[in-house]
Nucleic acid binder design. Structure first.
Lengths: 339, 339
DNA sequence: CTGTTAGCGCGTTCAC
DNA sequence: GTGAACGCGCTAACAG
């Protein structure tokens, strides 16, 4: 950096300012410095900047897995939202394991990330306290935790389960199965579904636990097993669209008419859901939008220093800084021909 | 860190060593230090470490987009491969744009990333020179570039195109279409397909350029248009499985028998390909394996300092350090019932 | 195996 | 609008 400063005939601090806060420098010197920068191919050492300023311009995110397209979409939205601002995305996969998440969070904190994005509302106690102590903005996504750490951008999985239950009941189905993973968000949806069915005479629910990450083959296998055992329900609500589509394909093979003999409903509204024959009923969730909303929430907060969610709560009455700390982006029942 | 050192009755450097190279410290002091670390909840400031050691333990990767499951899989493989080693993944999306890639690479370099992973072999000249000057390990994936920057982990898209062409010809198809994006890897596959068809009397090829990122609906729309114009080819090779599946669904709707009336072949062998009716012929590519192989290649190289690919080339005869700088993971024609 | 010294390359703070 | 000195928190290099 000294080389650049010398070449431009200024001091290092001016170079620094041109590269970080151009508006603080006169246009003339700015031009000189920029010219020198280009000539030398100089690139700021962000690590040194991080050490000096305690701001890394890195935001970290933890998702259960990238294999699931829904999380990949959220990361894409987040990444897209962050890109124009110069913030960078550090990524970690927890494999649905809170301990792994804890390890990741630790490292991220050590890297002085400016903010952290988590999936879901279940975290180890140590993660919660460390994050609170760290004072950095935290966003939990993909659900609406009862006791959020800080901010939330999600939707109610419980409500989604209820909505599906009500839809299925309204269509006249009584013998209803759920098939999906045992992760927290699925559990919430099951709880919603169950609460609605339990309140209805004659309605029964059965849950098939499928290993997380099971995709098309798992859905097909379930239908095959049920069909062969002559133990078919009237409707199945799947934990994700891949499972549901796999089931649908298996039904096609076995001549099980959809929705006449079996109703199928998926979750997430992946792109293929609408393309299937028949088009798949599902729950549309704002995968990418959650990522984008998270990005803008974070950017806002990072731009307005000293305003954590708790601070905002404390100052209460002052409306300038107060902002809703939890964003419910909702979901939408996407009823098509399969149910 | 001083607090920890004091509590453990050692100096700061010992604490540093316990946390970075435990084996360099006696078990006794290690235990003392670890106890102090736990008691205080101390976390290393990695940014300071980066500044002092010029090693960030961060590896950056640029993919065109995360919306495409194939790249998401590669990133997952990379992330999984990196996780046990303590390296972290910094992620960027180029949107298939070399200029955007250049910006990302710049920032990543500024962050002192220890290695860089790129998608494909097309980069701006500035990226190539900067990367070469930076001396950090670079891996290009998803293809076999003629002039690699450093290391390569991929497969031949050109060969894949040839293989599909040969298969289709062997099956007796002559009127063959390609439908897909205009990105470099698709272009290579088209070139392969074309070279095989051009060498065969009576074989014709036609290319439908579909916008990158087009999924199921785009495939369906293409078939709809062709069918209505009564301009159907005998076989279509798609740029990705989503396109092919969309086409397949549209064929189901229109009563176009597959493969009797139209052969369909996809690309990537996504999980759903085998589940469709009929199962989709496609080209199976090592999406996740490329990520994992990239991770191990990189970890190897980072563990063995002062051994860049060019160094390895220079020392030539010495077999200890010599290693293949390009890994062709191959592809596999996965012929199922749709072709 | 452990400690001492020095400095990584910036941004902050305060002057000018 | 610009500059000088200092220090961020850690690790490299050497010494003991």
């Amino acid at each position: 950096m000294e080389a650049v400063a010398a070449l431009a005939g200024v001091s290092t601090i001016t170079v620094s300012r041109v590269l970080s806060r151009p508006e603080k420098v006169s246009a003339a010197t700015r031009a000189k410095v920029l010219a020198a920068v280009n000539k030398t191919g100089f690139v700021l050492n962000l690590a040194a900047g991080t050490l000096a300023s305690k701001k890394s311009r890195i935001i970290a995110a933890v998702v259960p897995t990238l294999s699931n397209a829904i999380f990949a979409e959220t990361i894409r939205g987040l990444s897209d939202g962050l890109a124009p601002s110069g913030y960078q995305l550090l990524l970690g996969q927890s494999n649905y394991d809170p301990e792994t998440e804890e390890t990741l969070v630790s490292t991220f904190l050590g890297r002085q990330v400016d903010a952290l994005v988590l999936t879901g509302g279940r975290h180890t106690e140590r993660v919660r306290t460390r994050l609170r102590l760290s004072k950095i903005p935290v966003v939990e996504t993909w659900d609406l935790p009862a006791k959020p750490i800080d901010m939330v951008v999600g939707f109610s999985n419980l409500e989604a389960g209820c909505a599906v239950g009500r839809h299925l009941l309204a269509r006249g189905y009584r013998k209803i199965d759920f098939a999906g993973g045992p992760d927290d968000r699925s559990l919430a949806r099951i709880a919603g579904l169950r609460s609605v069915l339990d309140a209805t005479k004659g309605a029964t629910i059965r849950v098939h636990e499928l290993a997380a990450g099971g995709g098309f083959p798992a859905g097909a296998a379930l239908v095959a097993r049920l069909h062969e055992a002559q133990d078919m329900p009237r409707a199945i609500f799947f934990g994700n669209d891949a499972l549901a589509a796999g089931a649908l394909f298996e039904c096609q093979r076995r001549g099980v008419k959809i929705p006449q003999m079996l109703a199928l409903i998926g979750f997430a509204d992946l792109e293929f859901a609408a393309a299937l024959n028949p088009p798949l009923s599902t729950v549309s969730v704002p995968s990418a939008a959650m990522g984008q909303a998270t990005a803008s929430l974070l950017l806002n907060r990072l731009a307005a220093p000293n305003t954590s969610a708790t601070d905002a709560a404390k100052i209460g009455g002052t409306k300038s800084q107060k902002r809703s700390t939890t964003l419910d982006l909702g979901f939408k029942l996407q009823i098509r021909a399969s149910s």
